[in-house]
Amino acid sequence: MTSEWPLWEVFIRARRGLSHIHVGSLHAPDAAMAVRNARDVYTRRGEGVSIWVVPSDQITASSPDEKDAFFDPAGDKVYRHPTFYEVPAEAKHL
């Protein structure tokens, strides 16, 4: 058999209360082995309390080439940030 094991993306929750964060990828024959391999490759020093694995080919990504146009709608909407608004110093807790 020459075909490679499929590729998985690995996400780890470092501590309770934090979200899972992408840490890298690995090859594994199935999801259960991907989780076990991810434990050995990415959490040898207690880096996590939870692991997600996702088949890499199941991820849909935005195109890097269209980055500027794609994210352009947010570019001119500074009024979405609280710092856009000027309020008198005596108005507290705003």
């Binding site: 058999m1 075909s3 024959p29 199935d30």
Partner: peptide
């Protein structure tokens, strides 16, 4: 080992 793991995964699938 690699072949057996892949065959097992295919069978389970």
């Amino acid at each position: 080992v690699r072949e057996a793991a892949a065959a097992y995964a295919a069978k389970r699938r």
